[in-house]
Nucleic acid binder design. Structure first.
Length: 672
RNA sequence: GCACCCGUAGCUCAGCUGGAUAGAGCGAACGCCUCCGAAGCGUUAGGUCACAAGUUCGAAUCUUGUCGGGUGCACCA
């Protein structure tokens, strides 16, 4: 409703300026004054008019205010005044606005687009770490925002089950450990079942082994290292080819690890609809179809000269050169898509995959169910699937949650789509990029890693799977739950054990999700346990605590938020009283105005792909509520009309807090 | 060398479609539980918005340049 009010107001002001001064303005700026005392909207429009009209901004603002006041608008009751050096300030009629906020039922689903969000996409060869948590939490939250906006969203988690990283762990099991297929199956059986039964977690075993293999490739004489690398690529090729024992081992390992990743993410409330795997992109020959299309559209051309001779290449987006180089010249910067030996590169496979995402490939995966959630099933790609199955792909818009280091290959894919004439798709392809999570040197030392002098001087150190350097996701979650459990045990001694545990988990997950969301995407998170394990100040638990307080008030008042809001609406229909009450109490009005801005903020967050806007918005609302809470004692208020207002304000705050936290994937505990 | 991201309070970060005294959290000092839960609230201290030019009535915000930090730029995935 905030956005609508703004637009309505702007249209009115524009019309006024045109009739009064005969001036046609471009976009008119509108903002919120630094203090609620000054009003709800501020328009600096008089500054711009000052020169054209040769008049002081203050005078113009005053004239505009007078004219607007002279012709009241029943659709947007408000008062107007000139303020500061020449702002035109607008004060909404608080009672009327409050009623509008009360009645605002979530926006009607505007867009019916079928949107596809890809996130998580962890190499299935080791345990998930903090960096993956940022990815999954950002992606999952963004999905919730899109759905709140009425869009139909499919969530995909791409599984690179035939890449070098998986190959490395296969090399580890088969050649470093000398295990057979059968033994590996036993290891998996013993390390993936019931958490209380298993001794080691399979993904942790792989984490350690992957680091060991990576070192092993470098650990011997030059000659022998060369042989070890050869083994690595031989293994990779067997996995890619399929239908052999090495490929079977890879399949076993990657599937087991993927299941554990899904378990980990489910602890955070993160679910998926479909897991497309690279093995099917290979076996179902997505590339062959894409290759034809790419050749036909002229995006790819066969290089005949220079270092890329014999390769099918694509002009890079930034190079600015024409698709084909002028005669005699070769584009040495061109991106190789098909190698001179005929094999396709990663970007090539990615182009094929993205044609599928948009329904442009003309070929589909086969599907089978893979992982069961409470209300739905996550499907996985396969070569011969089951019928019936849901249909994935064919989206109108896609978002790829991938860290910023991959922006070059992402740009290549977009460039290919555009080159093929799929400009609408290219425009609706969003690389939802974010910076990595690194560790502070202190954190690295705390974890027992040796840190070089040089690294200790740096602000942060990049995590590395190859070095086994990083904080594992489940370790972090366990640590958070242990810390919150300690608190709930102390604060809620009378509650049953199961309830204390549930509350502790809600708070721990709230803290973790909020921590990952409060930073804007472009900020490198220098991870530190001290910050991540904090439950005070700008944290998830701070917001949850505000909710618990409000719930306690309603419990003790022996009424419900719904009843409080109904009572307020009834009271407000008797003109006057509420006006007086809201007038001088900005700390109350702040909460109502915040509520009014909900869909406005959601819009902003989606437009900019920035969930941090919502995180900040809900934190500010919590602060505003706490401020209100300490100034007004609700339960002991004796004036009934005033008590009605206070209860309704608490009810609105509660409604907003629960909704907004829900968008962030954070639960609202009953007590804490 | 080229591209992208970052440089704002002691620390970690918001603010960047140009607009009114540059904000929050943490940390520091002090204060507030006979009063709806102190995982809370209040007060104070703390800033040449990296630097320099330019555009503008107005620049943390836009442009250019410089410096510092990070990340990409394979016939790897």
């Amino acid at each position: 409703m905030y956005l609508e009010a703004q637009q309505h107001l702007l249209a009115r002001v524009r019309e006024l300026i045109q009739t009064k001064y005969s001036v046609e303005l471009g976009p008119i700026a509108i903002e919120q004054p630094p203090d609620l005392k000054l009003g709800d909207f501020a328009l600096p429009v008089a500054f711009e008019l000052a020169r054209k009209l040769r008049k002081a901004p203050k005078i113009i603002a005053a004239e505009l205010a007078a004219a607007l006041t002279a012709s009241p608008d029943p659709q947007l009751p408000a008062t107007f005044e000139s303020a500061g050096a020449g702002y035109l300030n607008v004060r909404l009629d608080r009672a009327a606005t409050a009623i509008a906020i009360l009645n605002a039922e979530g926006r009607p689903p505007s867009a019916k687009d079928h949107v596809l969000v890809e996130h998580t996409s962890i190499n299935p060869n080791k345990a998930a770490h903090v960096g993956h948590l940022r990815n999954a939490i950002l992606g999952d939250t963004f999905v919730r925002l899109l759905r709140a906006n009425g869009q139909k969203v499919d969530i995909q988690n791409y599984i690179d089950n035939t890449g070098v990283q998986v190959a490395d762990v296969v090399v580890g099991f088969l050649h470093l450990e000398g295990k057979t297929l059968r033994q590996i199956r036993e290891i998996i059986a013993a390390s993936t079942g019931d958490p209380d039964q298993r001794e080691l977690r399979f993904d942790y075993i792989c984490w350690e082994l992957y680091a060991r293999v990576s070192q092993w490739y470098e650990a011997s004489s030059e000659e022998e290292n060369k042989q070890r690398k050869a083994l690595r690529y031989a293994t990779l090729h067997e996995i890619e080819a399929g239908n052999n024992e090495t490929a079977d081992v890879a399949e076993l390992i990657s599937t087991a690890v993927v299941k554990m990743h899904l378990d980990t993410m489910l602890r955070l409330g993160i679910e998926y609809d479909f897991l497309p795997r690279e093995s099917e992109i290979l076996r179902l020959k997505f590339w062959d179809v894409a290759f034809d299309q790419l050749k036909q559209s002229g995006v790819l051309y066969l290089e005949t000269e220079g270092k890329n001779k014999g390769c099918w290449v694509m002009t890079r987006p930034e190079s600015g050169k024409a698709a084909k180089t002028t005669e005699g010249e070769t584009d040495e910067d061109a991106k190789v898509i098909v190698r001179s030996n005929g094999t396709v590169t990663y970007v090539g496979k990615d182009i094929a995959y993205h044609l599928w995402k948009f329904g442009l490939l003309g070929r589909d995966f086969a599907y089978r169910p893979f992982y069961a959630y409470d209300n739905h099933v996550c499907w996985i790609s396969t070569t011969d699937g089951v019928e019936p199955h849901p249909h994935f792909g064919g989206a109108q818009a896609i978002y790829n949650v991938i860290d910023s280091r991959q922006s070059d290959p992402q740009a290549n894919v977009i460039q290919a789509l555009r080159g093929m004439g799929h400009t609408a798709e290219a425009d609706r392809y969003t690389h939802f990029s974010y910076e990595m999570v690194a560790l502070t040197p202190r954190c690295a030392l705390e974890l027992g890693y040796t840190v070089s002098e040089e690294d200790q001087a740096r602000p942060y150190i990049e995590v590395s799977g190859r070095k086994g350097f990083g904080v594992k996701a489940d370790d972090l979650i366990d640590k958070l739950i242990a810390a919150t459990r300690k608190e709930t045990d102390q604060r809620q001694p009378d509650r049953p054990e199961a309830e204390r545990q549930q509350i502790a988990e809600q708070i721990a997950i709230g803290a973790l999700r909020y921590f990952m969301l409060k930073f804007t995407r472009g900020t490198v998170i220098a991870f530190d346990f001290k910050d991540a394990l904090s439950f005070e100040g700008e944290t998830g638990p701070y917001i949850q605590y505000a909710i618990v307080r409000i719930r306690n008030i309603f419990r003790k008042a022996e009424t419900t938020p719904e009843a409080a809001l109904a009572a307020f609406a009834a009271l407000t229909s008797l003109a006057g009283t509420d006006q007086v009450m809201l007038k001088e109490m900005d700390e109350i009005w702040a909460i109502w105005l915040r509520a009014a801005k909900r869909s406005f903020t959601l819009d902003q967050a989606i437009q900019t792909s920035e969930p941090a806007f919502i995180a900040r918005h809900v934190f500010q609302l919590s602060q505003e509520f706490n401020n209100f809470y300490h100034r007004h004692h609700i339960l002991t208020e004796e004036d009934p009309a005033r008590k009605t207002l206070l209860l309704a304000t608490a009810a609105i705050a509660l409604r907003e807090l629960i909704t907004l936290l829900g968008w962030l994937g954070i639960e609202s505990p009953e007590a804490m």
